[in-house]
């Protein structure tokens, strides 16, 4: 009996130790990054990672000496507009695919899926040509218009909308709700979790864009944060690593906020009690 106990204890100790080591390996770069953002660049260059010379100077420098605020502003606007547009357009098209009966519904949906299977990189040249023709290069439009809707979002919301109980639709029919009322008052609230998921996903997607804005923006007026960060690094011959770290820390913050807000809603059981 006792030996059995010892073995379970040992097993548990082993698995916790393993998990702790893995956690350290995964989290270390993140925390080293945050830590170095508080250190003067000279100390970092000397490799003096345990310096006690901690200050917020790098953050002050990032905000005052670089256009990072401008980049942040651009990105917030672009990401927010992209998110709102995707929520509206994806939910409306998903609604049509689920609740409206029309000819070639399946065909249209398959076409949607086909576009999802094509990686964005493969569409970059035609998209670039289109944007150029429209005269939108180095303009917010170039970063927003191609992302107003997404096949993935439509697909995801369609799967979610299909789970809406048919009785809710029937109950709404009896109360005389039209399609828009049903969409707005029942379908959207019922699928709140999926909507929040898509919102977070599209916001972070827009926030983390790098390749496309690199191609289509060339001035600080429209440059977004990820490219801005790159810009900080190569602009100067001597890289101010402390400040770059501080900037990187700043641009991670919205990601963390979105995840924390999202986590609150990703609780299961939100829709319990609708139908038995």
């Amino acid at each position: 009996m006792q030996s059995l106990d010892e073995r379970t204890v040992l097993k548990r100790v082993f698995s916790y130790v393993l998990m702790a080591i893995l956690a350290v390996i995964i989290l270390a770069p993140f925390f080293i990054g945050i830590w170095t953002s508080f250190l003067p660049t000279m100390e970092i260059a000397k490799g003096n990672m345990f310096s006690t010379n901690v200050s917020l100077d790098n953050y002050v420098a990032a905000f005052t000496r670089t256009p990072i605020l401008r980049y942040l502003g651009n990105t917030v606007v672009i990401a927010a507009v992209t998110m709102i547009a995707q929520l509206i357009f994806c939910s409306m098209s998903a609604y049509a695919f689920v609740f409206l009966k029309f000819r070639f519904r399946k065909t249209f949906f398959t076409l949607f899926l086909v576009t999802m299977m094509l990686p964005f990189e493969a569409e970059i040249i035609p998209n670039f040509a289109t944007i150029k023709q429209m005269g939108l290069l180095d303009h917010f439009g170039a970063l927003i218009i191609p992302f107003l809707t997404s096949a993935f979002g439509t697909f995801m919301l369609r799967q979610s909308f299909m789970q809406t109980p048919a009785e809710l639709k029937e109950a709404s029919d009896i109360e005389g709700l039209n399609h828009f009322q049903f969409y707005w008052k029942i379908v959207l609230p019922y699928n709140k979790i999926s909507m929040i998921t898509l919102g977070a996903y599209s916001f972070l997607g827009a926030w983390n864009q790098y390749l496309w804005p690199m191609l289509t923006t060339f001035s600080n007026n429209s440059r977004v944060i990820q490219n801005g960060l790159k810009q900080l690094k190569s602009e100067e011959t001597f890289n101010d690593w402390g400040m770059i770290q501080a900037s990187a820390a700043i641009i991670v913050i919205p990601t963390i906020i979105v995840l924390f807000i999202g986590q609150h809603y990703f609780k299961s059981g939100m829709n319990e009690g609708a139908v038995k």
Binding site: P165, A171, I174, A274
Partner: peptide, 17 residues
């Protein structure tokens, strides 16, 4: 809606939100 009736469903069809 124009038939002026109400319906109670087996699954209740309540709005969870």
């Amino acid at each position: 809606k124009d038939r002026n009736l109400t319906m109670v469903f087996q699954s209740y069809a309540l709005f969870p939100f």
